[in-house]
Design a binder for these strands. Structure first.
Ligand code: SF4
Ligand code: SF4
Lengths: 136, 136
DNA sequence: ACATTAAAGACTCTTAATGTCTGTAATTAA
DNA sequence: TTAATTACAGACATTAAGAGTCTTTAATGT
C-alpha cells in the first residue's frame, strides 16, 4: 500500500512546470532528463495530467507542456487524483448500510485528503524558489 | 493504491474477536466461515495479528484465538500496521534534505494515521452491539 | 517536404497480492 | 498411548497491478 512511482514523477513534473516562467513550453525530453526517466514512460504520465486538466499540451515542433491556466488552484490532491484516480483507499464492495468500519476508514482518509487539498503546488514552488534565492 | 483485502479481513476478524465475551477461544474455521474465506488463507492473516500482539493463540485441540489483553487500547491503526506494515505511503528513497514534497505527503498521511489511532476497536464493537440491541 | 513533438496502443517484465496445498508441532480427549 | 483437533510454517500457483519499452500515428512549425 504505497503511492505509485508515477505519482512521485507527476509531483516533480508539476512542481517543475509551476516554476517555469511565462508560457514557455517544456518538452517531455527535458522533463525526463530532469528525473532520469525514459521519455516514453513519462509521456504516459503527462497525458494523464493533461487529461486531468492540470497541464496543457501543444503537439508538433516547438511543442511541449505548460502548466494549466488554473495554476494557482492546483493542489497536491489534484495531482494525485489525476494519476491514481479518486477511488477510496478502503474498498469494501459490499457497502453494508451504515457500516462502522467503512465510516472510520473513510473519515480517516478524508483527513488526509483535506490536507492534500489545502496544499497548493504554487506554494511549494514559491518556497522552493525562495530557498534557492537564499542559496540554501 | 488501496488497502489490501487482507486488511479488510483483519478488521472484521478483530471486531468479531473484540465482541466475544470472556476468554472464549474462537477457531480459524469459525472466523473463516463468517467471512466466507478459506481457513488456510485467513490463518496467515491471523498469524500476523498474533505476531503483532493484537490477538493470542492457543494451539492444539480446543485451541483458537482470542483478543489480546490490551483489548481496550487496540486501534484501527494497530490492525492496519500489523497487516500492511508501518511504512510510509509515499516512499521516495532519495530523501533529499528538507524535501518539500515529502513534507506535504508525510503531514497528510499523519493526519490520517492520528485519526486511525484515535478509533478503538472496542468503541466500534460497543456501537455494533448497541445497534443489535436496538434491533437495528 | 521535413523535422519535431505529443498521443496512443501493443507489448514485455517485474513485483506484490491472493490464495491453495502439504506437512509439522502442540494440545486435548479417549 | 493413541487419535483427533488445532495453530503454524513454508512451498507453490495464480492473478493483478505497476513499471517500463517499442512502434506507429497525428499535429505543428520551419
Ligand atoms: S461490514 Fe462494512 S466493511 Fe464489513 S463487509 Fe459490510 S460494508 Fe464491508
Ligand atoms: S525532492 Fe523530495 S520527493 Fe523529490 S526526489 Fe528529492 S526527496 Fe524525493
Amino acid at each position: 500500500m504505497k503511492y505509485s512511482n508515477a505519482t512521485n514523477y507527476a509531483l516533480h513534473t508539476m512542481v517543475y512546470l509551476t516554476i517555469q516562467e511565462g508560457e514557455k513550453l517544456v518538452g517531455v525530453q527535458e522533463l525526463a532528463d530532469m528525473q532520469r526517466l525514459s521519455p516514453t514512460y513519462l509521456s504516459k504520465i503527462l497525458t494523464k495530467l493533461a487529461k486531468g486538466g492540470l497541464i496543457e499540451s501543444t503537439p508538433g515542433a516547438k511543442g511541449g507542456y505548460k502548466i494549466s491556466r488554473t495554476k494557482h488552484e492546483i493542489s497536491f490532491l489534484d495531482v494525485i487524483n489525476a494519476i491514481e484516480g479518486d477511488t477510496s483507499l478502503f474498498d469494501c464492495t459490499l457497502h453494508h448500510e451504515g457500516c462502522l468500519i467503512e465510516n472510520v476508514m473513510r473519515e480517516a482518509e478524508e483527513n488526509m485528503k483535506t490536507e492534500l487539498k489545502s496544499k497548493l503546488l504554487i506554494d511549494i514552488a514559491r518556497e522552493a524558489e525562495a530557498r534557492q534565492f537564499k542559496g540554501k
